[in-house]
Amino acid sequence: MSGHHISTDKTLLGVAAALLMLTILTVGVNYIHIPAPWNIITAMGIAVVKAGLVALFFMNLYWDERFNSILLVAGLAFFGLLVGLTLLDTLFRANVMPAF
């Protein structure tokens, strides 16, 4: 049944433990000094995994109707459009500041 999935304590505590480990991991990795841009990619990768865990198991998307997941993905996709098309300008300007 969609929407009324009852999570077990095991799942909830397991997910929380995983989030905790990932937090420690991301702080730890920070002190290793991975060269750019891989440091950002690692940090964001860990953040995405954490966010995914929260969305799937705390927010129950894993068991929920598909449409709610679509909504989340659509929101992120349009955020991607905002960033992507803006970068198309800001990264390709001859001068960072337009001439006034």
Partner: peptide, 8 residues
């Protein structure tokens, strides 16, 4: 005409 990149 705002000064955005011509690629954009």
């Amino acid at each position: 005409v705002s000064g955005q990149a011509s690629l954009a």
